[in-house]
Design a protein around this nucleic acid. Structure first.
Lengths: 128, 128
DNA sequence: ATATAACGTTTACGGCCGTAAACAATAAGA
DNA sequence: TCTTATTGTTTACGGCCGTAAACGTTATAT
């Protein structure tokens, strides 16, 4: 298992999010979608594609005049890496603390709470 | 209530952590403690003190030849800001998702789980 | 064959960050 | 009063990040 996902910056993650939704995408698709959402110039997006490629977060293959882009880093890897780094950075690795703080600060709906309780119950038994 | 805590970088947070433990501290204290833990030169620490001061995260007052440093941003504010920004950045604000992911990835001890369950129960009743 | 469109690559640039040297001010001690 | 230690301020510099222009390459359409 690859344990070292490359660092994906916030701007770059906007590109990745598209690829996680649908894969592969062509450059035009990526560029035009991002131009809507993010108001970035074509060149900006190209830079991100290039950087993501250099750090092995995506790959592309040519098919005719179209290039098809694929993610090499999965959404799960990305979130996992972000989680770990945040947990270490802010909570020194103490998950319990993190939960406590978020519970203290954020509003949770009744049903969200129920869901969490179920997760915890499951965790108590065989939970990995 | 101040809702805009300034952005404190990781290196700067090492200075803040000391001040959150004990307040006030003199520059020598800060510098020497950090020289142990972080292997930073005096000048580096001074830069951080300066930047933190400029962004109103700390203040200092002179007493004789000593300067006493005080935090202006509390640990709670810092964590809160970090939480929000992480939650928005990675989970688009969805706390439920965040919890689910962390539960999925991190090992929790039996007692940690119990604690969380109690917190959730409390939350279900009057918990704001 | 040639122009053009679609795409990748190189270069740039200001801002923030980690790291630190050099400079300035001032209070305490000699 | 003059030196020195203590502390603050200014400047610097390379790296990453967001933003983008300019340049190069190649496949299709004419």
């Amino acid at each position: 298992m690859l344990t070292n996902s490359p660092h994906i910056t916030e701007a770059e993650s906007e590109v990745m999010k598209l690829l996680w939704q649908k894969e592969p995408l062509t450059a035009i698709e990526i560029i035009s979608k991002l131009k809507d959402q993010m108001d970035w110039s074509d060149q900006t997006v190209k830079t991100f594609l290039n950087r993501l490629h250099k750090k092995n977060a995506i790959r592309f293959e040519k098919s005719g005049r179209n290039y098809l882009y694929y993610p090499l880093v999965s959404y799960d890897e990305y979130v996992k890496a972000a989680n770990r780094s945040f947990l270490d950075r802010i909570y020194n690795g103490a998950v319990g603390m993190l939960f406590a703080k978020f519970l203290e600060e954020e509003k949770l709906s009744e049903s969200e709470i129920d869901q969490l309780q179920q997760l915890l119950e499951k965790k108590k038994r065989g939970g990995s």
